[in-house]
Nucleic acid binder design. Structure first.
Lengths: 94, 94
DNA sequence: ACCCTAATTAGGAAATATCCTAAGTAAAGT
DNA sequence: ACTTTACTTAGGATATTTCCTAATTAGGGT
């Protein structure tokens, strides 16, 4: 939960997940879209993986990154709870 | 937008906004709920104010912090766009 | 005027994040 | 076996965040 919002807190990582909305992409393909070194992007991808916002899948020598909607929904649930009037547990605050 | 997610990225700040769900609170009242110094909590409150997730209102010598639902909704809109299939603009990625 | 209560700002130490270049791994082609 | 392609890990400089204590501001009461 904490890693989730931390992952979302960087503009580059948000842009990456926005890109992945259209479907899985390779690491290099993602890196090419940014004005930063490939290793830096790998670092951001690792952060996204730690947060479970993305998952990976090897396809030969390339690695495809896929957006994990379930994690996005988890973040949304937290925010929804803030706007709604429903009941909540202390669990939500972690 | 960036400040918004950055504000949400710290567990203490998330707990604060969860507390404010039940209504506005004073700075000291909030600080008392944490095992940290009051100035540290003031720092977090300032971060929340910068992100526009909370607003303040002076009431005599005490300051009340209020949750701003509109900012929560802005964050939610970003996430919703990720899960949905609707069209999107580059504006969203900021 | 003086003090108390409520809260913030200042300054600084320690931890974490962000970015780079260089080096390493691993699959695929020749 | 060697090379190329695709990508990650290692190491390190710099920037930012997080937290503390001490000092300050501001309103209210006596």
């Amino acid at each position: 939960m904490n890693n989730l919002f931390k992952a979302l807190s960087h503009p580059v990582r948000r842009r990456i997940i926005a890109m992945l909305r259209q479907g899985p992409m390779g690491s290099g393909e993602i890196a090419a879209a940014f004005d930063m070194s490939w290793p830096t992007i790998t670092g951001h991808l690792n952060a996204l993986k730690d947060s479970e916002l993305v998952s990976t899948e090897k396809h030969g020598q390339s690695v495809r990154y896929r957006l994990e909607i379930s994690a996005v929904e988890e973040a949304m649930a937290f925010l929804m709870d803030l706007t709604g009037t429903g009941s909540r547990t202390p669990e939500d605050d972690k």
